[in-house]
Design a protein around this nucleic acid. Structure first.
Lengths: 122, 122
DNA sequence: ACCGTAATGATAACGGTTTATCGCCCCCTG
DNA sequence: CAGGGGGCGATAAACCGTTATCATTACGGT
């Protein structure tokens, strides 16, 4: 049976207020501002559970940094700041993308990542 | 001083014949077909050297899988097969990409990855 | 062909990230 | 509000890709 703990509420709140993909470190840091005792293991456990429940989804960024974001968002892409390493959503998408593949290749999905400096760092 | 060993020649040959980004495991596997005794450490060492020399460049794929490809290729993107996990080059590129970022964001570069099934798997 | 030395390769060590452990805590139900 | 059990959190341990070690091999200048 699933309990509604302070920690789990904090983690959910972190995502609903952040509005961008977060690393586990970011989740821990922001979560500890709500529940200072929050530990690493709890973050890993709850994120895993929230992904299984379909509330969060993992976003794989180049370089191995796995981040998480709310799962119910519509199709979008991401911007990764070279300066502060924060990820942001990009809501526009070039639509002819799926036609770029070589002949005989079947495209299921695509991912577009922009790199540069975010508004705060620029 | 830099020696021209069988192993190093084999690794270079693997890339010139593959024509697509390779993981370290793939380099090892294909290299061992030329020099069966080829070891992991040698692959790591030579790949690192070839990157430093500017002959190879690293390609970071989502999920952390770092792959390598010839460095002198013009701007292009990649296709990753969900079935065989091989990466392929995609030479066409949607050109209005850099305009998609939110206001105030400066785009330096971008990466586009298509996912699906390659010609051999489809 | 010889010799000095860089390169190789089997293996151990490393570092970081993720998972397991386990005593204590606190959420929930009765 | 009391008791049971799931959750927490500090720590240890597992994991995995990469690098260091070191005896041996073999490239290449003489």
């Amino acid at each position: 049976m699933q309990r509604d703990t302070r920690q789990r509420r904090a983690i959910r709140r972190v995502f609903t207020t952040a509005g961008r993909p977060l690393t586990l470190d970011e989740i821990l840091e922001y979560g500890q501002r709500i529940v200072p005792s929050l530990g690493v293991a709890t973050v890993y456990r709850n994120v895993k559970t929230l992904v299984r429940e379909g509330w969060l989804s993992g976003v794989k960024f180049p370089g191995g940094g796995l981040r998480y974001e709310l799962a119910d968002r519509p199709h979008h892409h991401h911007f990764l700041c070279n300066s502060c390493d924060q990820a942001f959503d990009v809501h526009r998408c070039p639509d002819e993308v799926e036609t770029l593949a070589p002949d005989g290749f079947e495209v299921d999905s695509h991912e577009l990542i922009l790199f540069g400096r975010c508004a705060a760092c620029a």
